[in-house]
């Protein structure tokens, strides 16, 4: 029986291997054919032109912009909320707020996307002009979507800091706030960093919410109210009707995304093992 259990255990290794093989096998030849630098650095994405061009630079920038926007919105709010939950929240209130933040994590991304489409996009259109589907809309909605991740990881990181640090700071005459922000937060920074990195992973991989609200124009946006297309959106938008090299180029887009995610996962594990060592 042990053998059977062992076989099930190595499924995850097999799964990662299979995903790598299928993605790279189908995507890398396209990159080779288009040319690595033309593919990654090209600003022109026109698969139906004659001759077609397959540059995903705009999408890479789009993904980075949208993720950065989500981080700018989600990280400060998330960390401050985590501070509230870990240090300032009265117990009865905690019983309400904690499950609420967990609930936020469970809402499907398509629901976030629809909400963004019906509420956030019109709001931005009316307030800031443009057509509403924009980098800003995507940043706001993604910022909310990564909140639970940031809050959850940061809260447990702050809670893991030994209480004597806090007492030591109070005993020197520091206020609660100073003790938390000057001693407890710095002491939990690697845990919080892990949460932020996890949030980056979520944001960069998010697809269905972004596709409905980001506008999806292939361009490098020059303002927050302009549209943007991410790597993920590029795949979903065109996979349905693509053939030949176009289709392969979309899979290659997935490969680029996958490499991004692997880098994030690796840095995540590096942070973890470093904090365990310093532990």
């Amino acid at each position: 029986m042990q053998g059977v259990f062992f076989l099930t255990a190595i499924t995850s290794i097999a799964a990662v291997a299979l995903i790598c093989i299928f993605l790279f096998y189908n995507g890398v030849p396209a990159i080779a054919e288009i040319g690595f630098f033309d593919f990654v650095g090209g600003q022109q994405w026109a698969p139906t032109n004659q001759p077609p061009s397959y540059g995903i630079f705009c999408m890479i920038v789009g993904s980075i912009y949208v993720t950065a926007g989500a981080i700018i919105i989600g990280v400060p709010i998330g960390i401050l909320t985590a501070v509230f939950l870990a240090r300032f929240c009265p117990a009865p209130l905690y019983k309400i707020i904690k499950p609420a933040t967990e609930l936020l994590a469970g809402i499907p991304s398509i629901v976030y996307g629809f909400f963004g489409l019906m509420v956030v996009v019109p709001f931005i259109r009316d307030t800031f002009g443009g057509n509403g589907s924009s980098l800003l809309a995507a940043s706001v909605v993604l910022g909310i979507m990564i909140l639970p991740t940031i809050i959850g990881v940061s809260e447990s990181a702050i809670r893991a800091v030994p209480e004597p640090y806090y007492e030591g700071s109070l005993a020197l005459g520091a206020t609660r706030e100073r003790s938390v922000f000057r001693v407890m937060l710095p002491a939990s920074k690697s845990g919080i960093l892990a949460g932020v990195v996890l949030g980056i992973g979520r944001a960069i991989g998010e697809t269905m919410a972004v596709i409905l609200i980001a506008g999806n124009q292939v361009q490098i946006p020059t303002s927050l109210t302009e549209g943007v297309r991410t790597l993920t959106a590029n795949i979903v938008l065109e996979m349905g009707y693509s053939t030949g090299l176009h289709r392969q180029a979309l899979i290659a887009t997935g490969v680029v995304l996958f490499v991004f995610i692997l880098l994030i996962t690796l840095s995540m594990q590096a942070i973890k093992s470093r904090s365990e060592k310093n532990g």
Partner: peptide
């Protein structure tokens, strides 16, 4: 008060 009355704890607690 805590500035005027300092404290040293049982277990040394230097900040990290």
């Amino acid at each position: 008060l805590r500035k005027r009355v300092g404290m040293v704890f049982q277990k040394a607690n230097p900040f990290p």
